[in-house]
Each structure stands twice: as C-alpha cells, then as structure tokens.
Amino acid sequence: MCTVCGCGTGEVSIENNHNHQHDHNHDHQHNHEHSHETHAPHTENGDLHYGTGPAHSHAPGLSQSRMIEIETNILSKNDEYAHNNRHLFSHKGIFALNLVSSPGSGKTTLLTETITRLKDKLSVAVIEGDQQTANDADRIRATGVPAIQVNTGKGCHLDAHMVGHAVEHLGLDDYSLLFIENVGNLVCPSAFDLGEDHKVAILSVTEGEDKPIKYPDMFAAADVMLLNKTDLLPYLDFDVDACIAYAKKVNSNIQVIQVSAKTGEGMDEWINWLITQRKARLTQAKSALSTQLKALETAMDI
C-alpha cells in the first residue's frame, strides 16, 4: 500500500510503479454504519416522536433533510497533499519549481539546457507530467539526471498527490533542485498547488503575444515568465513589449526573462534567477535552524 495516502487503484500511472496507480476513484461503497438517529423515531415515555431531527420536518415516513454548513475549500484535499510535499521539500532543503506552459513551448528543451548548466553544481531531479508516453523523461535522463514520468491518462494536470508519489519514487537528495514539468496546458494546472516554491510559466514567441490575457489564470499564478525561442524573433511578428505588458497586466509582480534554449541567449539570467531564489529559500531555512539551535542551547543550559 502506498505510504503517501494508502490509496487504491486508478488511471494515473507513475513509471516503474506498477501497483501505484492513483486517481482516487476509490471504491467508495461506503455502506456506513448508520445509527439512524435522524431517521428513526425518537422514543420518550413510551411515545414515538417523529420530526425531532434538526430540520424538524413533521411528515411521518419522510426522511428529514437537514442543512449542514461546511465552508470548505473544494481543493482542500489537494492542498493538504501540497502542504505535505512542501513540508518534505523544506525539511530536505529541496528547491522545487513547477513549470507550466502550453504544449510545444519548448519546455523540455529549456529544461535539458538548464540541467546541463547546473548538474555539476548541484543534484537535480525531474518529474515529467504528460498524458501519455515516457518520451520526455527519456530526454531528461539522457542528460544524466534522474527523472520520473507521470502519465495522467485522461487528466489535464498534475496534482499534489501524484507529485507526492513521484517524489517518493525518485528518492530525492537533500538540497537538490526539483523540476516538475507539468502537463502542457495553460488552463488547469494553475489551480493545483503541488507544493512548489514557484510556478514558472513558459511562453514561446511562436505563440500569440496576447496569451497572458487569453489565459490569465496561469500568468496570475506564476512568479516568473520565460519568453522562450527568442532566436526566432527576426522571422516573426511577435511584439515582445506588448507581451510583457499583457503579462504585467494580469500579474504586476511577474518577472519576465527572455531566453533561447537553442542559442543560449538569456540562459545566464534564468540560471541566476534560479540560483538566487534557491539561495533565498535556503537562507530562510538556515535562519529557522539557527533559531532552533539557539532554543536548544538555551534549553540545555539550566
């Protein structure tokens, strides 16, 4: 049984993970042990009282509907898994990025280039999300870093639960860098927190410059936008300034980096961003640890 959640079988497949296919189509046959308190008549002094349930309906034989206020976030289950992932990442000092884009934006090429530049400096691992095939994970593995493919089947996004399992199977090193390449889709992945440090949206100049306002949710959720394939700009009518203005319109804090994974243009800026953000995260962890250490020393000193 899986240790992330103890779930059963479904449609999602994680590479080399035959028995762990999860979709949460659990057998919810729930034949609950109902005490029928709300349905059975209430007995008092030998009399039978119907309609004593919370809704106080008085029609004998009719069930008593009642109202329950629950005020719960619909994605609370996903958020719980995301919270667990984030906790694990922070515990192990892992810096995690969730890469989101439409299909064909050059995500995987950008990723292999990024990995090539970083793999000698730190431990890198990749979770590849696609509906089908392990092609992308194969491309990543060719760079020499561990990768695991998560096929979502009919699913249009990765969720925190799938990522939790993938992480378990990858066996990440402490202080490593984790890239989660989401399913190519500019809509659905925006709603699902995976426990990452940042969402990185990748947009290529072969797409329309108005994509940030056509798919605003994704650009609103991302902290950085990589404008990829800039080597092709001379051959296209793509308006870079308009594109950046649109992105800033939906998210005034979004940082934009122009890159070409092919020629290497802008790659230094992107790598610097990544190293700086990772360092900031580790610095936070370090100060938390030193606070803890001080508290420990104080506790010892009696």
Binding site: T38, H39, S63, Q64, S65, R66, M67, I68, E69, I70, E71, T72, N73, I74, L75, A191, I213, P216, D217, A220, Y246, K249, V250
Partner: peptide, 30 residues
C-alpha cells in the same frame, strides 16, 4: 477580467480582492 482597468478612474493599478473562491458552503442532507 484580471487585466481590466479600474471602471471608475481607468487606472491599471488594481489589486484583486475577490473572485478566486472555490468553496463548498452548505449541504442539504438526509
């Protein structure tokens, strides 16, 4: 839309305060 200007003064300096809700509020059950 997320990219709208202020309908009153046409400024682009808007901070979202609502519209991302995704909640179950209440149930009627038996």
């Amino acid at each position: 839309n997320r990219y709208d200007n202020c309908p009153k003064c046409d400024s682009g300096m808007l901070q979202m305060t609502g519209g991302e809700e995704l909640k179950i509020k209440e149930l009627e059950v038996d």
